[in-house]
Amino acid sequence: MRAFEYVVADSSAAARALAREVGAARFYAGGTTLVDLMKADVERPQRVVDISRLPLTAIERRGDVVRIGALARNSDVAYDATVAQAFPAVSEALLSGASGQIRNSATIGGNLLQRTRCTYFRETRWRCNKREPGSGCDALDGFNRGHAILGTSDACIATFPGDLPVALAALSAHVVIEGDAGERTIALEDLYLLPGDEPQHETSLAPGELITAIELRVEPLHARSHYLKVRDRASYEFALASVACAVELDGGRIAQARIALGGVATVPWRAVDAEAALAGAPPDDSAFRHAADVALSGARTRAHNGYKVELAKRAIVRALRTVCGGAA
């Protein structure tokens, strides 16, 4: 870990100002990703701005909108009664991630900005376009069992590692961002950028912007939601494939459905075509399988991750069946 300047911010505005004073600043919220990657010499901030004690931790319901402060801890959000009831997929996703200890430190805002677990990104010895633009990608022809099959490019196949953002994508969450021009709110999916030719650009945040909250709408669709994670170990591991889904049933038909995938894509992956395929369909395995096929139709596999296509499809079917209450 290189030397850096440490400064505590006493307001979000102060935090942003402090961050903009130097070329390479990083906000310290929970520290779980930042400290890890600073030890790996992947993150080399000149200045660390400690925002961990800013009062952005509330979970508040205003009308049909639940606003979760960016500094709320993962564990507090997971066990929040409103969240667990109105957004089961969010609670399940949080509890499937990391460990109890890490969930106590990690924050919601930080979780949105979690960096990939790609081995070739996490050690400076390897070629990585994300870490060192233009250097090449050692994952393409390397050990890529864990790598993405959706949203990839010839420059990067690094998997987005998070669970929560996948659930948030399925539940059409919004992200509240504070910048010099005030506050703006964007759809969660608009936070993330596909790697394309410039995988070093991961989000649409401008320099000095700070995520202050996420917002979720309370509605029947979101209450019937579920997060399913498939991994090698039974716990404390990143996903090989994961699915967040939400379904609203109308009589014997699916009125509307939401599906997002994790562990298989470079960003939290909303499967919009699969959602459309489910609209109006009966909640049965045949419809679920069709949706799964649609969701993975654009998959591009490498040497070791071909299995993820089948695994993700099965996970989609299982998650939909579960959320439909075994209606199939």
Binding site: R233, E237, F238
Partner: peptide, 11 residues
Amino acid sequence: LADYHVPVNAD
């Protein structure tokens, strides 16, 4: 120990 998987308690 994230990529080399030793069993965890739940395994």
